[in-house]
Simulated assay, not measured.
Amino acid sequence: MKRIISALLLFAPFLASAQNEQTFAEKLGYPKGKKVLIIHVDDVGMSYESNQGAIKAIREGVANSLSVMMPCGWVPGFVNYWKDNKDIDAGLHLTLTSEWQDYRWGPLAGKPKVKGLVDSQGAMWRSVGEVVKNASPDEVETEIRAQLERARTMGLEPTHLDSHMGTLFATPEFLQRYLKVGMEEKIPVMFPGGHNTVVQQQEKVISDQLAMTRMVGKQLWDAGLPVLDDLENSSYGWKGPENGDKSEKALQKYKTEKYINAIKNIRPGLTMVIMHCTIHSEIFPHISDSHVTREGDFLAMIDPELKKYIEKEGIILTTWREAMERRKKVK
């Protein structure tokens, strides 16, 4: 989220008040005063465990949306499943980095077209900073479009676009290309352009910065796209119980409580809640040391206690697909 704010600081000043205005959720026809959530799983296609975690989190739990890393090796495995299950809300997790030590991927546009996105191993750079240092906005847009083209070639028309590791929010120029593709292709993009209550609390956003996010939100809305009122993106930092108990039961309880507390803190409006779900395996820890928090996310999503809380509070669950269908009906 800090990358989003840093990029927006370089946009022209724009002042507005978020407190009393109609939320984007209300503009889409959702009831006033209701929390409307897109419970979203990132990193699909990265591994078998990532695919199964996302699918089971949706089929057996409360998650309702996901996005796919098109350069990764397990994309066919997910798309083949999706072709028989097209009700799943599936977007593109636009990927410009390859961060792991022993499992890596390269750009779909090909090295000759996007040399600035490729490191000495022929893979994408490991960090956002290296992408910023070496890649041009033109190369970034070329790779975005290559990932979209692969999805469409495979028969997957994405319901939305978002950004792996926030790379597309790292500079104003990258952000502009991301927004440009979404608006030109009429594909919703993940961008918190509303009251941003959670964003403000987590990032200590000042009024001018908030106003700039709202400027972009208005731009997306005027282009015919739905817009998020807020974004909850803190779950990756929930590593596990403080007492060190990593048992399945303890991890599930810990993560479920974290999600319930986070949702309590969300104001009415359309909010995307981001997570990373994997099933347990002996292999995934060799890909990433994040396996504990990812398994915890999955366990929380299938926890009956989380579903019970959502239902008790009258929280509305929606998808990017439904949000776009609603946006098309708004004049």
Rank of each mutant, 00 (worst) to 15 (best):
V330A: 07
A146T: 05
G129T: 01
W100D: 15
V189A: 02
V132C: 09
F174S: 07
V114E: 06
E149P: 08
G110L: 05
L270M: 04
V140N: 06
H93I: 06
R327H: 09
E157H: 10
I315K: 08
L96Y: 06
G53N: 13
V128M: 02
E60H: 12
E313G: 01
M70L: 15
G269Q: 12
W238D: 01
Y30D: 11
L8Q: 07
S281N: 10
W74F: 14
D42E: 03
S47W: 14
S65F: 02
G240T: 05
F174T: 03
A146Q: 07
H164Q: 06
E248N: 09
I144E: 02
R294D: 09
E185V: 03
G217F: 09
G244Y: 05
Y103L: 10
L28K: 12
E282A: 14
N196H: 00
Y81N: 04
D303W: 08
D222A: 14
T153Y: 11
I302F: 08
D138F: 05
G53T: 11
C72H: 11
M190T: 08
G91N: 06
A123V: 07
I55H: 05
C277Q: 11
K239W: 13
E242G: 15
L28W: 06
L175A: 10
V131D: 04
G269K: 12
I287W: 12
M46W: 11
N51S: 12
L92W: 08
L168Q: 05
R326P: 09
S247W: 01
R145C: 10
Y48H: 12
K186M: 11
K113A: 14
M275I: 00
V75H: 06
Y254H: 14
E257L: 09
E26A: 15
E185M: 07
A250D: 02
V273F: 07
G53V: 04
D87V: 09
K113V: 09
A170K: 03
E325W: 06
E143K: 14
